[in-house]
């Protein structure tokens, strides 16, 4: 981990009033140190998406100058953007963390999972994720979810207990008092920990800009062949081919979230760096998931249902 002297988040720290970003950063570092100290075998869920990148950056800061004291786990749907996988591998190498990969494709190949009729693989991630947690005997699992993302997520605690089936019970959550976190659990259970709970999308982008954090290139404007489907711009490629009546167009786009190529939409944008994106996000009239995630449009309770089953 190298920390640049130009970090604007920390350079203001000699003034007595902490900025919003300083408070959020400090809270996240506190959460990492607290839960990694109490847990036996933590693991961090790392997709290469901006939230998990920021989360990993904060973990590196929390334990500097020691290496991050846990591995990272990626649940690979098999439909990921190649530039994200490349970024994932490079980042793990740079930070010297062990990368574990749970492959949805393997599950489909040997019949443990079958492809959905709509071709979307995001809901299929739950089983490989839970198996990887069980096999790795991970008792503390870090996720990059933010409460501002979605209504069911807004109800999630920072420390969220999962039973041995990986299930979340929203009606029986532990009260979370002061900054005293309770990570106790019984054998077979684990806790999900969300260090970015209190960050908004805007905070994430401000932090990326302030800390000069590298992201996969597709977060910034680039030209790409896309088709318009269900109101979303989907990248044409191995997993998305034009249907009747759909035309391939070349447009300047970027992604607001990174997920499956088959269901993550791009937005038209000329934003070429973090500052540009920041300006764009601040004036956006759509939520990031509303704009670009087909999987969240399935039903009013789509996210809650997936979370109950043990999804991220």
């Amino acid at each position: 981990m190298t920390t640049t002297a130009t970090s604007t988040v920390t350079s203001a720290s000699n003034s007595s009033a902490l900025t919003q970003l300083q408070r959020l950063e400090a809270e996240s570092m506190h959460i990492f140190r607290e839960t990694a100290s109490e847990g036996e075998r933590p693991v961090l869920l790392f997709s290469g998406g901006k939230d998990s990148v920021v989360m990993l950056h904060l973990a590196a800061k929390a334990f500097w100058p020691c290496p991050i004291p846990f591995p990272v786990l990626h649940v690979d749907t098999g439909h990921n953007f190649p530039e994200v996988l490349d970024f994932r591998n490079r980042t793990a190498e740079r930070l010297k963390v062990r990368l574990e990969v749970a492959s949805v494709q393997d599950y489909i190949d040997d019949g443990r999972l079958s492809e959905r009729p709509d071709g979307t693989r995001n809901p299929l991630q739950t089983v490989p994720l839970l198996d990887a947690i069980t096999d790795g005997r991970h008792d503390v699992v870090y996720g990059g979810a933010r409460r501002d993302e979605e209504k069911a997520r807004a109800k999630e605690r920072i420390i969220s207990l999962r039973d041995e089936f990986g299930q979340w019970n929203p009606r029986d959550q532990r009260p979370e008092l002061w900054s005293l976190y309770n990570t106790r659990h019984r054998p077979g259970e684990h806790v999900r920990v969300f260090p970015l709970s209190n960050w908004t999308e805007l905070d994430i982008w401000r932090y990326i800009a302030a800390e000069n954090i590298e992201l996969p290139p597709l977060y910034y404007a680039h030209e790409r062949d896309v088709i318009l489907r269900d109101g979303m711009l989907l990248a044409v490629g191995e997993y998305v081919t034009p249907r009747d009546g759909e035309d391939i167009e070349r447009r300047t786009v970027r992604y607001r979230t990174v997920g499956d190529m088959s269901c993550t939409g791009a937005v038209e944008s000329p934003a070429a760096n973090a500052e540009d994106v920041l300006a764009e996000v601040a004036t956006s009239t759509l939520t990031e998931r509303g704009a670009t995630r087909a999987d969240d449009r399935m039903s009013e309770a789509a996210m809650e249902d997936r979370k109950r089953e043990g999804y991220f």
Binding site: M1, T2, S11, S13, L18, E27, K61, A62, W64, P65
Partner: peptide, 18 residues
């Protein structure tokens, strides 16, 4: 006083430091 590799002269309530 260190904040992830950055030395500080002073740190205040709320900051996570070493």
């Amino acid at each position: 006083i260190d904040l992830a590799g950055q030395p500080l002269e002073v740190a205040v309530a709320g900051q996570s430091v070493t």
